[in-house]
Design a protein around this nucleic acid. Structure first.
Lengths: 256, 256
DNA sequence: CGTTACGTTGAGGTATCTCAAGACGGGTGG
DNA sequence: CCACCCGTCTTGAGATACCTCAACGTAACG
């Protein structure tokens, strides 16, 4: 453990190449020894089957997570029994931070497909961060990025047109695929129409119709969960109020 | 600066009694000397007039803020020129954390009334936190609580019935007034109907009608911005799908 | 090859938005 | 003190986008 462990560094670089833990592991200023210490803390590649929960509402804060394979959703079930989707978590994206406020998870994390996750015990993370200022900064940044995704969600939900929400959702997803180093204009949705609907505050039929409409308008190609973005510009336009397909003048600026 | 300063401790305890910076200043394990160091960092009581901005979208992360008097809203203006309200910040609540992900503010903070704010330069906060593990933990917790408020916002926006959103909004506001030590069943709204609407993803008329309806049903009393919560239980019920007025028989979905 | 989950499409009802007019309340100045 | 103005809030009536209900198509799987 006191040896500088170049082997571990190499392995981490390889296996976590596109992982957001990279932000925690590999910033400048974290040397091999520090990294080795962190490495002993990360528990790697825990497998989960589709539909299994990683944590449930009320569970104490134990760790933060990153899927190395597969995606997750986080959901809350309200008193009326309806399920709301709070977020989707692609491979390489950190999640599970919802518990750092109260110490308890406010939602449930469910695997959308057979998955593998790395987990990083939070107490040890905090301890190490206290000793490594650079790691502390990285930790703050990663937390901030997680909050940014929540803001994106709010942004989507604030749109009052279903077509805007759907376009913005697809655009955001594309952006995130790009960021984790995957094709961003041709991908497989890890979630169902119903789950998208519960994320967007709509019903599944509306989502389906929205997809069909974007297809008709030549913005995307859809077949089931396969999505190809044909016209990214048009997608952005649709996300910002160019709601109706053939709106001749999508220019409306209200001012006071 | 190197003196232990019991006087400052006393002053901080008094002046920041209900302030969320308290969480950063006064946890067990932070002694007077530490506190003195923190005290030198907090800039206090900067005044702002109603409508003035504390920071704007794109501004670099400089500090985090707490209003000691007055309230704030954080807003984004989308390309179409519409203003979305991301959050309201009551006196004593920490805000401005939206920039820790990217280093730049993603929204604009506007005073809802004449206000005074304490600000805490972020770089120095991070430096001090690195030296004080207990402060680091408090910082994480405060950040987490801020994220919790964002989750509450998502929760509200996910409701598809306007009446639910409005009831949940009022209930959440009441809860927050309670937490900052103010009357939670009788208060003055710091924001307009229009601002509430832009927070809830509705139009102002719908908010107004929702208030009137809750008034008619004897759940609240409203006169302009003055709100009194008459029946908290009914408010909770309305927030969770007991949407329609006096439906004592909670069948599947009953419409009067 | 049947079963099952998921996705698409259609028709009709309804909540919310839009547009519009009026009421209230807090200021200002005569 | 009152008249007046302005921003804010309320209320009404009609248009519309979305939800509900329902049937059918499609794909994955044993």
């Amino acid at each position: 453990m006191s040896d500088p462990i170049p082997l571990n560094l190499a392995r981490l670089r390889r296996t976590c190449a596109e992982c957001s833990l990279q932000m925690l592991c590999l910033p400048a200023g974290v040397d091999a020894e520090d990294l080795g210490r962190l490495d002993t803390v990360v528990q790697r590649r825990k497998p989960l089957a589709k539909g299994e929960s990683l944590y449930r509402t009320g569970d104490p804060l134990r760790a933060v997570f990153v899927a190395s394979e597969g995606s997750f959703k986080t959901v809350v079930v309200n008193p009326a029994g309806e399920e709301h989707v709070l977020g989707f978590h692609l491979p390489g994206e950190l999640f599970g931070l919802d518990a750092i406020g109260s110490g308890q998870h406010r939602c449930e994390a469910v695997a959308l497909s057979d998955s593998r996750v790395c987990e990083l015990p939070f107490s040890q993370l905090a301890t190490i961060a206290a000793k490594l200022p650079s790691l502390q900064q990285q930790l703050l940044r990663v937390i901030g990025q997680s909050a940014d995704r929540d803001h994106d969600h709010v942004d989507v939900l604030s749109r009052r047109q279903a077509s805007e929400r759907i376009a913005l959702f697809l655009h955001g997803l594309s952006e995130r695929y790009r960021r984790i180093g995957r094709p961003c204009d041709d991908f497989q949705l890890p979630m169902s129409r119903d789950e998208i609907a519960r994320y967007l505050g709509l019903v599944l039929e509306t989502v389906s119709r929205g997809f069909s409409r974007l297809h008709e308008d030549g913005v995307i190609e859809v077949r089931g969960r396969r999505v190809r973005i044909v016209d990214e510009t048009a997608l952005c336009l649709a996300a910002n109020g160019g709601s109706d397909g053939a709106s001749p003048q999508p220019r409306k600026r209200d001012r006071a």
